[in-house]
Simulated scan of single mutants.
Amino acid sequence: MNEPIFLQSVFQERIWGGTKLSDLFGYAIPSEHTGECWAISAHPNGQSVVKDGPYQGMALGQLWASHPELFHSESPVFPLLIKLLDASDDLSVQVHPDDVYAGEHEQGELGKTECWYIVDAEPGASIIYGHEASSKEELARMIQDGQWDALLTRIPVKPGDFFYVPSGTIHALGRGIVVLETQQSSDTTYRVYDYDRRDKDGNLRELHLEKAIDVSTVPQAYEPIAYETQTREGITITSFVSNAFFTVEKWDVSGRAQLAARERYTLVSVIAGAGSLRIQGGEYTLRKGDHLILPAGFGSFELDGELTLITSHE
């Protein structure tokens, strides 16, 4: 199949969500507390659906299972999940398990290594990334004593920043931030601290301290990220991270750029601008907020316009 697969997103309401997914991307969101756009997802908790073309109306998980020739992957499940998150309030401080722990404790769910591209950030916005405890015992004690300011490492952020968040990293988005998140296809989160917030029924939200302490990396390990950038006619490609879970790049298109095919599929999210994608026999409009898959064997193609894309693949 030599045409892109455009997807319809799924929206998730969250206690910390807002309206920026509508304000910035023009999405029709379900409420004023919309926290997540599951843009490219085959996870059972929210599956993207093909917008048009020969597979119109098909859920991504069904497409993955019934048309493996579109992906050329050895993974038994669609391995990635692409989200846009609107943190209009602070997210809970949390940590995610790796594949082994999740497989044993979460009914075979994948672990959750993820990364964030900061799309938008209000002045003074920050994230929590890592902690200061030197042992599991100290981590448990500082959590028990509520020593959050001493325990948690806070980092200021601005639009265009990128953060790699391996499983085991204690983390949280702060208020006033919109991110594009590339992650393993998992919905397992262990909450460490939630600011004593209550849900719509007035109950304190559940924490998962035993599991969180189990899976947290102690002492905190910070992996250096060395970006690689290449510029050629019409495009600058920034390679953020490439590992066993995913490869994530930013494509800044200005004018006309020719790109070669990949053997496997590529996931594409348009986070700024507008333009077009051209292949032999077809042209497709690209707008901010579009999410699509370039299937395996897609062939060479041309991008034209003023566009910023975040792309990923296995």
Rank of each mutant, 00 (worst) to 15 (best):
A212C: 07
K288E: 13
V100F: 02
E283R: 11
F11Q: 05
G46T: 12
D52C: 01
F240W: 13
K250P: 10
A133L: 04
Q62T: 15
V77S: 12
H291G: 01
F162E: 09
L110R: 15
H33P: 00
S31N: 08
G234D: 07
A221T: 14
R262M: 11
L63C: 08
S135C: 03
L91E: 09
Q147L: 08
I237E: 13
H105I: 01
F163L: 04
Y190F: 15
Q147N: 07
E32A: 15
H171M: 11
G174C: 13
S300H: 09
I29G: 09
C115A: 07
V93E: 10
S185P: 14
Y195D: 11
I170T: 08
G289H: 04
L24E: 10
D161L: 05
E3L: 13
E36T: 10
T236H: 10
S88G: 12
A102E: 01
G282S: 09
E3V: 00
V270L: 13
H105A: 04
L70I: 06
S134K: 14
V10L: 00
R198M: 03
E36I: 10
T189C: 12
V10C: 02
G124C: 13
I15G: 02
Y101A: 00
D86W: 01
A226P: 08
V77F: 08
L21M: 02
I293E: 05
E122P: 00
T34K: 03
H43E: 11
Q144A: 14
H131N: 02
A212L: 09
E181N: 06
L81H: 05
G168E: 06
I177P: 12
Q94R: 12
N2A: 08
Q144R: 15
F240T: 12
A150E: 11
K51N: 04
T182K: 02
G176F: 04
Q144I: 00
A39G: 08
V49I: 15
T308Q: 15
E106W: 03
D194N: 15
P4G: 01
Y129V: 04
Y195E: 11
F163H: 06
T182C: 14
Y284T: 09
R287K: 13
G108S: 06
F71G: 14
Y117D: 02
D23H: 11
Y129R: 08
G305L: 06
E228G: 11
C37I: 01
V165G: 03
G111L: 08
I40L: 05
F298A: 01
S167T: 07
I143F: 02
S276H: 02
L259V: 14
G174I: 06
V268N: 01
D86C: 03
F162A: 03
P295S: 03
M1I: 01
S276W: 00
V165T: 11
L267Q: 09
G234T: 06
T238Y: 12
G281I: 07
H72G: 00
L259E: 15
G160K: 07
G53L: 01
W64D: 10
L204V: 04
D23R: 13
L267I: 15
V10T: 12
P156C: 10
I118V: 15
M58C: 03
I279G: 10
